[in-house]
Structures are given as C-alpha cells and as structure tokens.
Design a protein around this nucleic acid. Structure first.
Lengths: 335, 335
DNA sequence: GTGAAAGCGCTAACAT
DNA sequence: ATGTTAGCGCTTTCAC
C-alpha cells in the first residue's frame, strides 16, 4: 500500500523541477526532448498519475469535467437507457458521470444534489421528484447548469426534455373510443408525478371530447408495482359492469394488467404507455405508446453541455414525439 | 453566474477567522454558541457549501468517498440492476459512484480506469473486458482496492463475485439430456468472455458425461444480437438433421432464438441462461437458469468496502448460486 | 475559544 | 528551456 507518487517525487527522480514535470505531464511545449524523455521515464518508472482533483482545484477555469445524473431508479430499464445515453455523450466530451437514484424521494434527491454540488460537478441532469425544488433553484442561482429530463421540476425554470405525454395519451384513448369502447379504465401510477398527471389529463380530455362521462369507478391511481396493477385489474374485471378497455399508464402497470387479466384472456382491449421487450410476442401482442429514453437522455446531455460551454439564453423546453404502435391488444372491439 | 463563496468569504461576512468557519462547517467542538450562530447565519446568507474536493485534498486520510463502477453496458438490465445495488450500498455509507460502460472494449476500460484513478476514487468495481488487465494490476499494486463482478479478470488476483456458470449450464443441459434429447444446439455469445467460456464448458461436460458426442454443426459462437441469434436458429432448424433442443447462453440470445423459431412454434425444447421479464407469459413459457444481478452487485460492493476499510487478506472469490426454473419450454420431449 | 502559519498536489504568472 | 513564487480552498498544527 505504497503512497502514490506526486509530481514532487517525479521531479526528484528525474532531477528536474516540479514545474518541468507539470509541463511534460500536461504536454505543454517548451521542454527539450531530452528532458521530456527523462521525465517520462521517471513517470513510468514510478507509475505516476496526475491527481486530477488537485489539478482542477488550481486551474483557472474551475471545472471538474464531471457531471451529476440523478434518476428515479437506475435499475428501471427506462432510466438505465437514459443514463447510458447521457454517459455516452459525456464520454465523447471527456467528462465523467456521477449517478444516483432517488426512489422518487425528495429528501434523497436533496442529499444527492448537495453531495454532487459539493463535489463541484460542472452540471446536473435530474429526473426531478415530485417535491419542491428550492435547492435546485438555489444551485442554478449560483451558476450551476441544470437540465430536467423526463419531467419538469415544479417551479423551476430550467432546460427540460420531455415527451408529449398528454397528447399521446389523448390519442391512445381516442384510439380505443374509435373502436367504440365507452367503459375505458385508467390504470395510473402515483398521481403526484408530473408525467402521470399529464397522462391522466390526456385520458380525461379524450373522454370529454367524445362526450363520454368519466366513471370514477374505472379510475385507479397510485399503482406502484406489477402486483398492485394485477390486483386492481382483477377487481375491475369482477365489477357489475366491467371495463371493455384498459389504458395503462406505464410499462410495469401494463405487464401487471396482463397478469391481472389471467388466462384465458378475456375480451378486453389494452393500450399501454411505454413499449417493452417482447410486447410483440405475447399471446396477445400489446398496443403501446412508445417513447425513446435514449433520445431523452442524449438530448438532455446536449442541452447541459451547451450550458456548460457558456450558452446563455432563457430555458429551452424540448418535447420529443412518441410513437403509437398498434399490435392487436388495442384493436379489440367491445363485446 | 456569481462565483461560489469560499470559507474566506464566510469568515469575512461573519467577522471571524477562516479557521473558525472551518470548525463550524465541520461540526468540530470548541466554538462558542454565539460564534457558531454568527457563522451559520453567514453560511446560509451566502449560500456557502464546502468544496469537498479541496477538503479531501488536504485531509489526512486522503480519501474521496467516491468509488468507480465499470460495467459492460449500463443500458443492459442485468448491469443496470447490478449498478443499482452497488449504488445503494455506496449510498448507505455516504459514498458517491462514478459509472462508465465499456462495451466490452479493453481500450475503453483502460481509459475509464485511468480517469477514475486520476480522480482519486477509493476503489473500483469492474466487470472486466476480455483483454489483459496489466493496468488493473498496476492500480492494485499502488494500493487501489479492486473487485471484479460477474467475471474474473484474466491474470488478476482480486476479489471476485461470480455465479456457478459452468455448473448451472451442465445441469441445464443435463436436464435436456434427461428428457432424451441428443441433438442439443449451443447458442453462444462471444467466446472470449469468461462467462461464456464457462457456459460452453458446462455444455460440453454434460454431453460428455452422457456419452453424447459434440456435433460442431450444432454449435454457434459469437452471436452478438437478438437478430443474429434469430438468424442462427433459423439456419439450424433448416438443417438435414435439425436440433431437437436448444441451449441459449444469455437472455438476448434466448429471445432471438424464439424469434428465429417463428410461428407456429416448432417442437423444439429450449433452455436459456438468464431469466427475463415475461419469460413466464410467452406462448411457450421459457425454462431458464436465473441469476441475481442485485446480489452480485451488492456483494461486490461489500467486498470492496471491506477492503477500503482496511481489510487485508488474500483475495476472496464468492460464487453465488443460480436457480433453475422449469416453465415448459425445456420439458418438451424430442419428436 | 480563537487565530496564524504551513501545506495537500497542482498550475498561473513571472522570472531567468 | 527551466525554475521560483504564489495560491486554488481547505485542514492540520501549534500558538495564544
């Protein structure tokens, strides 16, 4: 467990001054080939590596070439794909990425943002929790570039990358209405998350546009797992007047809904938000609204780096399009 | 874009010395309540945050409370889940995590490990690429704790967390043999990856133990995508004497194999390494060998932190058990 | 209880 | 072409 060599050690070993070592290590011109060779030899003999933290501390442009990424849950394939896209964009620019999941807990978000900021990250990409964001606001006021991905942060004027949640849901539910469904259940995740409020709003708008009154008995919010979704669907289907169609507000709930329908599959139409692997290979291929997390992440990273590079202008809001993919489950007519 | 306040600024604002601010910020005792209050007020008025990098640089125990995680591909649900488990373990200990994907490219691994090391991470968790690992070796020699996850690094004596790849595959193929299959195809990923060499070895061992000669025509290595796997299976099935059973060496290939079988599904048994969502809900539920990436990641993190905490002993190798899950596709007898 | 001086590992600015 | 000095933001050490 030998202590790491420093520039001082290299200077001593090479018989030059510390400054000369610095020049060689940083590739600055103005060092004779002979000296350069001597220093490089000492570097490799000692296994010297520059301490980037010390370097960043001293440099004029106080930049760490590190960004922070705060997501809901890294294990969720959606955020994992988003994270990978961010990471690739960062890698191309020679930046490193600190990541953390929040589990949608505002307190944990707060801790993580503080920790990242204390580490002097050059910018933050955040999938904001449902809470308030006074901290992020304060960070931005101090000059920290912040980009929101997947959803905006309440009351925060920052660059944002989202998809057309409301519009896409309206179209999806309209698709079911066009197939003559009138009892369309809504299967929702937590209602305090922006994306889900938007999706529910789209559901309501579609019904209203078709003169269909919303039946509160067909609406379920707060489904947090596949099992909860399955349970909710089983209950809905055993009602006096069961729904003839289901709209599911994310991939997890869609899969749970299929669980809840059981086998053999009853005659119920199903459209889900989010595409998922094998949706096309299930016994009844699933019609979905598909969004592209890689593009969301990549776009967020580009916005962030433009700010880091000094771009000054009012916040931009990028809305990416979703794709409606009809596979069968959404095209079943009512009984 | 105001420059961030430093301790000096806070000291000036509170009318105390820089040292007193440091004491208050770090919660050291020995500061009068009145002074503490004055300093705290100045801190919050200026929005002061300690620069952790500077702090770490000067501290006696030169530790950054940051670890590096290097995976094959963060967008792959397997590694995403592993990463999440590492992150949780780090969070519990107040550590941050730098992540990067390598795409199994040894050069990129090299770059990333160097970058992490230059940032003074306290330790590394690596899913090693197939290449040589002289760099990791050098890092360890300089006192950097390193843990390998999912597979060992060739020629590197480090803590390692893996699963019983060979054994599990032997059992899976034996399962097919027990169902009287004799023409069992092997669908493999890149052969230079350790896990896949192990799995292929298990396949060979099972055949040998049952006196079945290996038919090279039934073995496909190097399948790198769902599409390539589908193509390979389509070719295999159109042979003079097609296989009656398939062993697939990872989840991606298993799904590709199902694609390649087409519809209606021919009478072919299928067992795959890796479980995947909805494997139980496909028209023919898929029999799999299931491993648990969260436990792999969590265990790797625990091993790493024990080293960071100073545990000194020869490298430990933890082998986690897989689970065989029979769901139907692997229990189909030959025609 | 509080502060002044030194220095972590490095680079900017100015010598020579 | 090379070296010296100062100092990034902070903590250690020692003095008062």
């Amino acid at each position: 467990m030998a202590a790491r060599p420093t520039m001082k050690d290299v200077a001593l070993a090479a018989g030059v001054s510390l400054m000369t070592v610095s020049r060689v290590v940083n590739g600055d011109r103005g060092v004779s080939p002979q000296t350069t060779a001597r220093v490089e030899q000492a570097v490799s003999r000692l296994g010297y590596q520059r301490n980037d933290n010390a370097s960043h501390l001293r440099r004029k442009a106080q930049t760490t070439r590190t960004i922070g990424l705060v997501v809901d849950d890294l294990a969720n394939p959606f955020y994992a794909t988003l994270a990978r896209a961010v990471e690739d964009e960062a890698y191309r620019r020679g930046y490193l990425v600190l990541v953390s999941s929040t589990n949608d807990d505002p307190r944990r978000e707060r801790e993580v943002v503080l920790a990242f900021s204390a580490r002097q990250v050059d910018g933050l990409i955040v999938v904001p929790t449902a809470g308030s964001h006074s901290l992020l606001k304060a960070q931005m006021a101090q000059g920290m570039p912040v980009v929101c991905a997947d959803r905006p942060a309440r009351g925060l004027d920052a660059d944002t990358v989202t998809v057309d949640n409301r519009d896409a849901t309206r179209k999806a539910v309209t698709h079911l209405l066009a197939h003559r469904h009138r009892r369309i259940a809504y299967l929702g995740d937590q209602r305090d998350i922006w994306t889900l409020r938007e999706r529910f709003a789209g559901y309501q708008e579609a019904l209203r546009a078709h003169g269909v009154e919303l039946d509160p008995g067909l609406v379920r919010h707060g489904l947090r797992s596949r099992a909860e979704a399955a349970q909710a669907v089983a209950e809905l289907m055993s009602r006096q007047a069961p729904p003839t169609a289901l709209f599911s507000s994310n991939d997890l709930i869609t899969v749970g809904a299929i669980d809840g329908l059981g086998a053999p599959l009853p005659r119920v139409a199903l459209v889900g938000f989010d595409d998922f692997p094998l949706a096309d290979r299930l016994p009844r291929p699933v019609t979905v609204v598909s969004q592209d997390p890689a593009t969301i992440g990549g776009t967020a990273a580009q916005l962030l780096f433009s700010r880091i590079d000094g771009y000054q202008a009012p916040p931009r809001s990028v809305v990416l399009m979703t794709r409606f993919i009809a596979r069968g489950s959404g095209e079943i007519p009512p009984p």
